[in-house]
């Protein structure tokens, strides 16, 4: 429980860092600036973060790797989904949903497979 609390506190620190940058963007460019910085965090960090969260990397590695992986691979997924889904805007949401579904289901599937093996 203590470890979980620490993890949440550490995540909050990084969230505060993102919000600080978003605030500066707000001062410079108004709400568009704020939205843009939040969009960078949500579009490029969150998808890969969901996939990396159960790996053997530490919090900071997950966060920074997520950003750098997300910059090149999340748009690729959106592009691929858009070849099937007629709308680009819908494809962004669909790609996000697909990643969330995989991220939340694969640990359960792996767990089941392990139990079966035993």
């Amino acid at each position: 429980m203590m470890v979980g609390f620490r993890m949440k506190l550490d995540s909050a620190k990084w969230l505060a860092c993102i919000l600080a940058v978003a605030f500066v963007a707000f001062l410079l460019f108004g709400f568009t600036g704020f939205r843009s910085v939040i969009a960078i965090a949500v579009l490029f960090i969150v998808p890969s973060w969901l996939l990396l969260r159960k790996t053997g990397l530490d919090l900071e590695e997950k966060m920074f790797f997520s950003l750098f992986i997300g910059l090149g691979l999340f748009p690729l997924l959106v592009f691929a989904v858009n070849q099937l889904v007629p709308s680009f805007r819908l494809s962004i949401a669909a790609a996000f949903a697909a990643i969330a579904a995989v991220a939340f289901s694969w640990p359960k599937i792996l767990g089941k497979l392990r139990r079966k093996r035993q």
């Binding site: 568009t32 939205r35 843009s36 969009a39 960078i40 579009l43 910059l71 748009p75 959106v78």
Partner: peptide
């Protein structure tokens, strides 16, 4: 496509 899709996503998200 990644860089250009990123630009497009920013336009969509940033309105």
């Amino acid at each position: 496509p990644s860089s250009h899709v990123n630009y497009a996503m920013m336009q969509v998200a940033g309105a």
